[in-house]
Design a protein around this nucleic acid. Structure first.
Length: 586
DNA sequence: GCCGTTTTCGGCCCGACTGTTTTCAGTCG
């Protein structure tokens, strides 16, 4: 999992990490439900919105115990960590088996039991030790290990060292779709679908899952493991095969029977916690849910489609992007029972009418305004907003007032060439440290849409950053805030900013917040989008496209909006041109 | 270790694959 550290909730992450490790350490000795309890507590701490330190400060031990999955014993360990910076019992366990669990468990095929044996017999404490004993041939011959295990460990170490195991959705999706197209050519493949985190359109994914129905699984698997670009076949069987591609990502293929397609798709789409909850609901109704169907005793009562699976559990259908155990099951239950507060009718992939954030070669884009506009029109949009960088962003050839006005004239000319399509005048101004903008108000007033973004001075306090952005929002010419948290996936964390205050200011100043669809930004995140909407803010989706093919990142932005439970009404550029202009008083 | 419309004890999601065994433990998703 990509741990995107959040300094405000740093203690939550630190303590969660310790609990995850305690869970592994317990498993080393004696697999038991005790370890699951720690795992669950860790998970809940990670996803807890509040800062655990604050929770404790305000409510003490009692408040800790009110958190789901945290009882007396675990609450005391949290208290101990907050007071002393360590957990004695964890230190004691670690002393007994002082290994680098984090990196060792990252090696494919190594779990707590095997790690323990490797430590006890060969004193392998970390990847370096492990690599050494594997190369010396000391692993084969250990109880439970053979030649194959030793080879796999060596290979696993290489993979761990090469990448940290996460990939950007925008980078993987095209490749997985190609794999699916390849498989479709096989006549033995009947139905086929993407599953897993890629189907949920998670921002980053660890591997790709594909699901197929076929009467000839063997043939499908034979074909799959021989696809070009495969570097390693992890496993090959009649129902599941797993491979690694040279680009470094793993792909799993599952073959199931037609009657189980829906339940398998549901199962393999996840996420894990959504599924656990779904299974609990099944159990409560005296049913059993697994990848083969929904069963009443031995009788299958659903399984062919996902819809009927959810229906059999008494739930409305839940879109894959929503399956995060983030309240969607409860909402689906209410909806199925005709109660209020059901599932949102999330925005559809075809409902965006224009791209709100596009660069041209006037600043750091690769193509002319006209080229970008033509491509956008081809994809079916009614408009785009050209939002080139402005003065302060020298590295991107930012436009000053004079050049912006020249560009506006140019856009007027270009618009005469288009029918049923409009290029709107905009810019992406920089929010300076003090909250002022790098373009004069008189010129901003002539723009159709002004996006204000933070592009420098990230390392200021949360208060300063929040005030800085709010000041920009209070400028009557600013229509939207670009990539509001500034994060770059797998590279850079968000800057410190109080989003609750930003969301409130967005509502008050009628400033839209951007869902930046660029594949390594996807900023805001799904969770943040949900909160923004709840706070009454409006959103726009922009690709931040710097070249033609970037315009297709819109799909990722829409996915992000869906993950944030956004409906069409929440997204301003789902409005047709006329209504969009009306909204911004143009 | 946690939890409670099965409520203070007994259950906690569950099946496939690998590598090692010779009936299964460990790992993964």
């Amino acid at each position: 999992m990509p741990v995107i550290y959040d300094e405000v909730r740093m203690k939550n992450i630190e303590i969660a990490e310790i609990f995850y490790q305690i869970a592994e350490l317990i498993e080393m000795d004696q697999p038991s439900f005790r370890s699951r309890a720690y795992e669950k507590a860790a998970r809940n701490l990670e996803s807890l919105e509040e800062d655990i330190e604050q929770v404790y400060k305000i409510g003490g031990l009692k408040a800790l115990e009110d958190i789901e999955g945290i009882g007396k014993s675990i609450a005391e360990k949290i208290e101990e960590y907050l007071k002393t910076g360590q957990v004695k019992e964890y230190q004691k366990m670690l002393k007994k088996c002082p290994v680098d669990l984090l990196n060792l468990t990252a090696v494919e095929g190594l779990g707590p039991r095997k790690i323990k044996i490797l430590y006890q017999k060969l004193n392998a404490k970390n990847l370096k030790d492990l690599e050494k004993v594997a190369k010396q041939g000391k692993i084969k011959g250990l109880e439970g290990f053979g030649e194959k295990s030793q080879q796999n460990i060596l290979q696993g170490i290489e993979f761990v060292k090469r990448d940290k195991g996460r990939f950007l959705l925008g980078a993987i999706l095209p490749m997985v779709r190609k794999i699916i197209d390849n498989l479709k050519e096989l006549k033995e493949v009947d139905q086929i679908s993407l599953a897993g985190s890629a189907r949920r359109m998670q921002e980053t994914i660890g591997d790709a899952d594909i699901l197929v129905t076929s009467d000839n699984a063997e043939k499908v698997m034979d074909f799959f493991v021989k696809l070009s670009g495969i570097e390693k076949v992890w496993a090959k069987g009649p129902t599941r095969s797993s491979v690694r591609f040279k680009d470094g990502f793993d792909c799993d293929l599952r073959v199931i029977k037609k009657e189980s397609y829906g339940s398998a798709l549901q199962y393999f789409t996840g996420n894990k916690y959504h599924n656990i909850l779904a299974r609990r609901i099944a159990i409560a109704s005296r049913l059993k849910l697994n990848e083969y169907g929904v069963f009443e005793g031995k009788k299958r009562i659903a399984g062919e489609t996902e819809k009927e699976v959810y229906q059999a559990l008494g739930l409305s259908y839940i879109e894959p992007e929503l399956r995060e155990n983030n309240g969607e099951i409860e909402a689906a239950l209410r909806q199925a029972q005709g109660k209020p507060n059901g599932l949102p009718k999330v925005i559809d992939y075809g409902e965006i009418k224009g791209d709100c954030h596009v660069h041209s070669n006037w600043s750091d884009g690769l193509y002319t305004i006209e080229q970008m506009a033509k491509e956008a029109k081809k994809t079916g949009y009614q408009y785009i907003v050209i939002t080139d960088h402005t003065a302060d962003l020298k590295i991107a050839h930012g436009l000053n007032e004079e050049r912006l006005l020249q560009q506006a004239e140019k856009i007027d000319k270009i618009n005469k060439k288009f029918k049923k399509f409009k290029v709107l005048k905009g810019c992406e101004v920089n929010i300076r440290q003090n909250g002022s903008l790098d373009i004069d108000d008189q010129v901003l007033a002539k723009m159709d849409l002004v996006i204000a973004s933070v592009h420098s001075g990230f390392k200021i306090s949360q208060d300063q950053m929040t005030q800085r952005v709010i000041k920009a929002m209070e400028n009557p010419h600013v229509d939207a805030i670009g990539h509001p948290t500034g994060r770059v996936l797998l590279k850079r964390d968000s800057y410190q900013i109080d989003l609750d205050k930003i969301f409130a200011a967005a509502k008050q100043t009628k400033t839209a917040l951007e869902i930046n669809a660029y594949f390594d930004r996807l900023d805001l995140s799904g969770k943040e989008i949900k909160k923004a909407i709840e706070a009454g803010a409006k959103l726009i989706i922009g690709t931040d496209g710097h070249q033609l093919k970037h315009l297709f990142y819109m799909e990722l932005g829409i996915a992000q909006a869906r993950r944030g439970w956004a409906e069409k009404k929440d997204i301003l550029n789902a409005l047709p041109l006329e209504k969009f202009l009306e909204y911004f008083n143009l």
